[in-house]
Nucleic acid binder design. Structure first.
Lengths: 110, 110
DNA sequence: ACTATTAATCGTAATATTGCAATGAACTAA
DNA sequence: TTAGTTCATTGCAATATTACGATTAATAGT
């Protein structure tokens, strides 16, 4: 199949899964880390920084942009990318709530 | 290809990606949320709770167990699953650091 | 206009993921 | 032992993802 049955889950569950999925590839993790690290926005330096071909990086950037986590600005022939701060913060809120579910409630059973 | 070139990324980047990947499916998100919610540990109630077939749930549980996020105990004919608290906390630490990268540093560029 | 540069898109091959029917393994109860 | 229950595993079909060469589109410089 390879097809997630999203209709049987809540909006929140699907939202968490979508965000998590985009972090589920080390290249996208590396791209985001680099965008956080570099003071100015970066364009195709990412292709050199990360060792993947230009079309591959472009594809990963597209996915990140599609989820709203980064934004890109055309500057001449190059494109400048950076973190979309508001959306990142909103995403962080959702993911943090998921990660911080209460562990103290139940005694260990297994 | 369909094959992530993990060797060109850091251990941390790969670790984040692996954790994120397992959260990248709503069924696994739902399973974890249910394990957090239910006071006692759950076995095949998950099959009823979530609307997927038994082999499918079993496969998702296997992935969660493989990453160490849950543990399972055989109890007669049924198997009791619950969150692996120590590992969950360790994972949360890694993911939280990734999510909490500093946004205040750079001015918006785009 | 011509060329170079940069990045998106297209097309395609290789691999991974998802879902389930069928089966198997382990235990329980009679 | 036999039958029933529960869950894991196997095998397979459908779909998704990843990666990149080739091409295209847009801009800049000459």
């Amino acid at each position: 199949m390879g097809l997630a049955k999203t209709e049987m889950f809540t909006d929140l569950q699907n939202e968490i899964a979508l965000f998590a999925k985009v972090f589920g590839h080390p290249a996208r993790v590396a791209i985001l880390q680099h965008l956080f690290k570099i003071n100015s926005c970066v364009c195709g330096d990412l292709v050199n920084e990360i060792g993947l071909a230009q079309p591959t990086i472009s594809q990963h950037l597209k996915e990140l942009k599609h989820l709203g986590l980064i934004k890109g600005n055309v500057e001449g022939t190059s494109v400048c990318y950076c973190i979309h701060k508001e959306n990142w913060t909103a995403m962080k809120e959702v993911m943090t709530q998921f990660l911080n579910q209460d562990l103290t409630q139940n005694p260990d059973c297994c």
